[in-house]
Design a protein around this nucleic acid. Structure first.
Lengths: 230, 230
DNA sequence: GTAAATTCTTAATAGTTTCTTAAGAAAAGC
DNA sequence: GCTTTTCTTAAGAAACTATTAAGAATTTAC
């Protein structure tokens, strides 16, 4: 497995250090943070491939942090918690964590889970942040700069418009139903919001298409949804 | 989340059935197997998106089965085990499992973990191991793009037409009765709707066959139903 | 606090699909 | 060869889906 950076977030120094020792032993680079706020900062500064996150922390707890991280990135998150009640596990996983380990934990088990998540990550070949740019027949997207351009000319998109375009361009060719687009962009269930999406599609077409009535990029798949042409 | 098929492998009928009830409640289709050998068979026959695998089973145990599955496919595997010792967990994860739940388990926690794995699976947009494309003598189907093409030339199908073609092409060679086609596409009992299906078959032939009167792909099996030629 | 920009709602229109009906053709059984 | 059953085909009505515009409500920026 390649060189990986793991962000370890826990308010207890002993735990951070213990985990670091085991991870280093596996050739994994460790970045450390004391709470959720610091974790988000470190995330912005570094390339991180996996996060180990304690639930009980001052300032910003693990569950809330998971939620915030998921809004931006899709890297594996393993939640650490002293509580072993089922409800916590479910909450953690529902909020978007990929795995859950209860304290006290066997370090070897934690390492095994980390490696399992990283293996999956590598196999699927999607190092988040790596393919940060996409180009589809002259329509380009830069995920870091959050910029879209058509034949080099920047297109000014609103935040929602950008998110829709990023979703569709990141999975070019795949069809997304209107409710799926809504759920993935707004992050809430789609209830009677179909037309809302339609209006945004219209606006996007107006900006990225030469002839919005005969779209070349953002196509409709009748009765199913929309897709970005490969 | 889209329609998923989960393979549940356990030698105890009560456990298989219990898991089935909860998964069905989430709209997930369940395929069941009693041991590792049967699991491998079912895997060959069906499109499976996730496997729940018991460790202690006759013939072929869960750990060995995981190893064999990983040689072929990269779909998520959740291991179920009565033993909760750390060594087993580590062994399971190292061998390639994605998660591990110990018996007795809270069904809701298991479901949450299943959904978590499936979400990840979908988010990454790479149904690894899932045959997202099919090619039958020049007739091709792309499940992600919801596109059908004949010798590379795209065919414009309506949603229902597409679903029928996907059903038949996904099980090429197998004959489907008209009522089975109706039930699997419309997802409701077939009551006096036989002719409806026939009309759609006609339309499909018009679009995918060179000579609709002498169909090469979509053949009738007299008195039984229709099939897609292998 | 105001102005600007963004987002959402409503509703009318245009366009497509789906279903129903019904009649003709092909296959199977006797 | 005749009858019955099953399959094919056509055409129009009904139902549904997508597009579009305009304005109201909300959020954001200064």
């Amino acid at each position: 497995m390649g060189p990986f950076n793991v962000l370890v977030v826990d308010d207890e120094k002993e735990i951070r250090d213990a985990i670091e020792i085991y991870l280093k032993n596996e050739g994994i680079t460790v970045i450390k943070a004391c709470d959720g706020i610091e974790a988000l900062e470190k995330l912005g500064e570094n390339t991180v491939h996996l996060i180990i996150l304690d639930v009980m922390m001052p300032r910003l707890d693990g569950i809330s942090a998971t939620f915030k991280i998921r809004e931006q990135k899709n890297i594996p998150i393993i939640i650490l918690s002293a509580k072993s009640e089922d409800t916590d596990k479910i909450l953690g996983l529902q909020v978007g964590a990929d795995d859950y380990v209860t304290k006290p934990f066997n370090p070897l088990e934690l390492i095994a889970r980390v490696k399992s998540q990283l293996r999956r990550y590598v196999t699927l070949g999607t190092y988040e942040g790596k393919n940060t740019q996409i180009n589809l027949n002259g329509l380009t997207l830069d995920k870091e700069a959050k910029e879209v351009a058509i034949h080099g000319e920047a297109v000014k998109l609103t935040p929602i418009e950008y998110k829709i375009v990023e979703l569709l361009m990141s999975h070019a060719g795949r069809v997304f139903s209107i409710s799926e687009i809504y759920e993935r962009v707004w992050k809430e269930p789609c209830y009677n919001a179909e037309n809302t999406v339609a209006v945004h599609i219209r606006k996007i077409r107006e900006k990225i298409e030469i002839d919005p009535k005969n779209p070349r990029y953002l196509k409709v798949v009748w009765g199913i949804g929309y897709k970005m042409e490969k």
